[in-house]
């Protein structure tokens, strides 16, 4: 349950209610919302206590969250949708962001070339995989820690924050050491609960992709793991789900975007590349994602997709990516939003 106090409710009253609830065996968590106190209650709220809360003069209302016991990420825990700061890029709110980069970090020069290309085309965050979750064990598995270093160096060289996928809790220190601005938890690890707990503890921005067969309820529950573990900067990323349709790699589930807006305050991104697996479909799916309410899109860019070490067929060329950014700007304007300003380049970097 979510207990929303009147604006300006006295702190001692809130504390009194909190203690009363904890004595009743409930786990009580407080929202980060600054404008009024909001408490989340995990556990079974007895009817008599619920009535007592509803009648309390300092309490505006008591709501059930859309998904049972998904509390901290529920829409009702915030007055406005939350904004996550990824190395100076604000994801969520009015601005629309574009994340781009190679599927895999393929070497120092290669990632730097793509970083320059996406930066000049208008990307806000550089993506790149160093640890690759591949279906086949003989496929390229990524350069690991060396890949993280190359990605971060490329991001710093062009003045973009970076996001990269983490697959193992043991790698958290390496991500921190290389100052990776945002940790991505991929579709296959969405319900790797020990990884979620380990990542939550470091309280870095997290991009949580939807599992390939995960319901919205399961996805939001995974986000709740992060939030309840101490991560205050969670972003969701829809990337297509497994359906009976074989014409595309997955099926992009845009249906849930407006619903997620009602159910959660978290920023929502869309990865149309993994959803369809076909580069020429990505511009249309990106536009559809923004129109359906996404806070941004994440796409893959490669200078020569035919030689890419992973997911070449879904990589855009730099020129195609520049057109996508231009379309995103126009569409954002029409929707009363705007493309997020380009990140400021660090002095002496280009």
């Amino acid at each position: 349950m979510i207990v929303r106090f009147q604006a300006g409710a006295a702190e001692e009253v809130v504390q009194e209610v909190r203690e009363r609830l904890e004595r009743a065996g409930l786990r009580v968590m407080r929202s980060l919302e600054p404008s009024r106190p909001i408490l989340a209650l995990a556990g079974k709220l007895e009817r008599s206590l619920a009535k007592e809360l509803a009648a309390h003069e300092a309490i505006e209302r008591v709501d059930s969250p859309p998904v049972p016991d998904v509390l901290l990420v529920a829409r009702g825990m915030r007055e406005l949708h939350s904004v996550v700061d990824v190395g100076g890029v604000r994801v969520g709110g009015r601005g629309v962001v574009v994340i781009a980069g190679p599927c895999s970090v393929e070497g120092r020069e290669a990632v730097l070339d793509v970083a320059r290309a996406v930066r000049s085309a208008g990307a806000h965050i550089l993506r790149g995989g160093a640890f690759k979750p591949r279906t086949n064990p003989y496929a390229f598995q990524g350069f690991g820690v060396e890949g993280l270093r190359q990605l971060k160096d490329a991001g710093e060289a062009v003045g973009l924050p970076v996001v990269s996928e983490i697959m193992d809790a043991a790698d958290v220190p390496a991500f921190l050491e290389h100052d990776i601005d945002c940790l991505q938890i991929g579709a296959r690890n969405m319900q790797n609960f020990s990884l979620l707990k380990a990542v939550a503890r470091v309280n870095r921005p997290v991009l949580l992709k939807r599992g390939l067969a995960a319901t919205v309820e399961e996805w939001l529950s995974a986000a709740e793991y992060l939030a309840s573990g101490g991560c205050e900067q969670v972003m969701l990323c829809e990337r297509g789900i497994r359906t009976f349709e074989k014409a595309t790699r997955n099926t992009l589930d845009l249906t849930i975007l407006p619903l997620l807006r009602e159910w959660t305050h978290l920023p929502i991104l869309v990865d149309p590349a993994h959803a369809c697996g076909i580069a020429r479909l990505i511009p249309a799916l990106s536009r559809a994602s923004i129109a359906a309410g996404a806070d941004g899109v994440a796409v893959e860019v490669h200078l020569d997709p035919s030689t890419a070490r992973s997911d070449g067929p879904q990589a855009l060329l730099p020129g195609e990516f520049a057109s996508l950014v231009a379309d995103t700007r126009v569409l954002s304007g029409v929707l009363g939003r705007n493309l997020h300003p380009a990140p400021r380049a660090a002095p002496g970097r280009a």
Binding site: R329, V330, G333, V334, G336, L339, P341
Partner: peptide
């Protein structure tokens, strides 16, 4: 009209960037 105005504003924002 709102869309035209929003786009003109967005054009200005880009120029300012």
């Amino acid at each position: 009209d709102r869309a035209i105005l929003d786009l003109v504003d967005e054009r200005l924002r880009l120029l300012q960037e």
